[in-house]
């Protein structure tokens, strides 16, 4: 349906500008956590596996297997991404007490 295409293209372009605008100037110490946080957000690819499996009747063994692996990959991306970002950011939450397992990381805090 062409109207869907145009709507989706508009959303695509506008989201690009939003992403550009949100990241204006990031302090150097936040570069890695931000990379990790955006990594978790693109873990949304898990939806692709979910929607195709949940709506797919009689997909056949091969396609089902491919989608299952995609689902597992996407789930690892999104779950691991958010958890690891949360751990990185612990460094910023409580400046006086350094995290227990932050050995060798001298970049913590501001």
């Amino acid at each position: 349906e062409p109207s869907n295409l145009i709507t989706n293209l508009a959303i695509l372009v506008l989201s690009g500008f939003v992403g550009y605008a949100v990241i204006s100037k990031v302090p150097n110490t936040l570069h890695t956590p931000l990379m990790s946080g955006t990594n978790a957000i693109h873990g949304i690819v898990v939806l692709g596996g979910l929607v195709l499996l949940a709506t797919g009747d009689d997909l056949g063994f091969g396609t089902t297997l491919i989608l299952f692996v995609a689902l597992v990959f996407g789930a690892i991306n999104v779950v691991g991404g958010f958890v690891v970002t949360d751990r990185m950011l612990e460094m910023f939450k409580s400046k006086p007490t350094p995290p227990k397992d932050a050995e060798g990381d001298a970049k913590g805090g501001k």
Binding site: N4, L5, N8, L9, I11, L12, S15, G16, F17, V18, G19, Y20, V22, I23, V26, H31, L34, M35, T38, N39, I41, H42, I44, V45, L47, G48, V51, L52
Partner: peptide, 25 residues
């Protein structure tokens, strides 16, 4: 891109803000 092909707006927005912000970052 997968979001456009699957007609899934959550994928389009989340993917594209990461694509754009990731490039700036």
């Amino acid at each position: 891109a997968a979001g456009v092909s699957l007609d899934n707006q959550a994928l389009i927005v989340a993917g594209m803000i990461v694509g754009a912000s990731g490039t700036i970052l």
